[in-house]
């Protein structure tokens, strides 16, 4: 299970002076669902293209299923299914014909192709629409057809580039569930690129955060928040109080709070107090505030989620006050 199926070694792609991907090291294990998370233009698609051998890296190496994608792209493409963002189909052909075409490009005989395509259409729930022209498919249907298209070749790895873009929330839910189910059933490794952090959070075993051509961090969400905030304050307590504090009162409360074991920073902002810390200190905060005679309205504890990680890295700096 621990053997890695995708390996990138200081992969770099430059367009002129601009480095779209900058010395990227990444390894993805067999059978896991990996989320590549980053804003638009971070170099996610370029990385994917290099994995498939569709574009040549300026330097560095890509190995997928133990095969170098730059030198043997055909062997890689035989094992890897790729769903581009905003996938398109031949509109004059039906959904089924489109899949049959892909199947036959993968050297299946007509008979095999028909059997596999029909099974897949059943699996993704497009059986009834299989005869309809692909041009008449809705966005969500097209995306599901795209998934079937990727699975036609019986891949070991599937790479999905922004697969949930433009689908309604229920469609997204179903689509992601389908991906998880497939990955678990068939032991397929999934690499999913997205800038929708919540969706990534829902389905991915591990996440890599990718900004401006660099991988900033990787791991599961808990690991990530630890890795990114361990030196600072992974926990944040927000206290709402009644009436603004007088300056002297604010000083005493602040010093008391800072004396707490695990509290690192305190910020008072009119009727709100933010306490950042390395430990869970909610109970102690409540105790101090009540003892100081402050009217406490409510207390709110928050762990850092991908949201904060995201904002922190993509916008930089201040994390406080981003949540209500």
């Amino acid at each position: 299970m621990n053997q890695s199926i995708i390996e990138l070694e200081s992969l770099t792609k430059k367009y002129g002076e601009f480095a779209a991907v900058d010395h990227l090291d990444l390894s993805i294990r067999k059978g896991e669902i990996f989320g590549l998370l980053g804003p638009n233009g971070a170099g996610k698609s370029t990385t994917i293209l290099m994995m498939l051998g569709l574009t040549e890296p300026t330097s560095g190496r890509v190995k997928v299923c133990g095969i170098d994608s730059t030198i043997h792209p055909i062997d890689v493409k035989r094992r890897v299914g790729y769903l581009p963002d905003d996938v398109g189909f031949y509109e004059q052909l039906s959904g089924r014909e489109n899949l049959l075409y892909t199947a036959r490009l993968n050297r299946l005989s007509r008979r095999e192709a028909e059997q596999r395509v029909d099974a897949l259409l059943q699996r993704i729930g497009l059986k009834d629409a299989s005869g309809k022209k692909a041009g008449k498919y809705s966005r969500g249907m097209r995306q599901r057809l795209g998934l079937a298209d990727v699975l036609v070749k019986n891949p070991e790895v599937i790479i999905l580039d922004e697969p949930t873009l433009g689908i309604d929330p229920i469609g997204v839910r179903e689509f992601l569930d389908l991906i998880v189910a497939l990955s678990r059933e068939e032991q397929i490794t999934v690499l999913l690129s997205s800038h929708h952090l919540h969706q990534v959070q829902q389905v991915c075993d591990r996440v890599g955060i990718f900004v401006a051509g660099k991988l900033l961090a990787q791991g599961n969400v808990v690991e990530l928040s630890k890795a990114l905030f361990s030196d600072k304050e992974p926990y944040l307590v927000e206290a709402a109080i009644e009436g603004a504090l007088t300056p002297e009162m604010a000083e005493t409360v602040k010093s008391q709070l800072l004396d707490l074991e695990g509290a690192v920073s305190v910020r008072i902002d009119k009727e709100r107090i933010y306490i950042g810390g390395t430990q869970e200190v909610t109970a102690e905060v409540a105790h101090i505030l009540v003892h100081a005679g402050v009217g406490l309205k409510h207390l709110n504890t928050r762990e850092y989620g991908l949201d904060d990680i995201y904002t922190k890295y993509f916008e930089g700096g201040e994390v406080y006050g981003k949540t209500a």
Partner: peptide
């Protein structure tokens, strides 16, 4: 423009 090109070149063909 219809997005089929990237899908086709991702198939195992030269």
């Amino acid at each position: 423009n219809s997005g089929t090109l990237s899908r086709i070149v991702a198939q195992p063909i030269h």
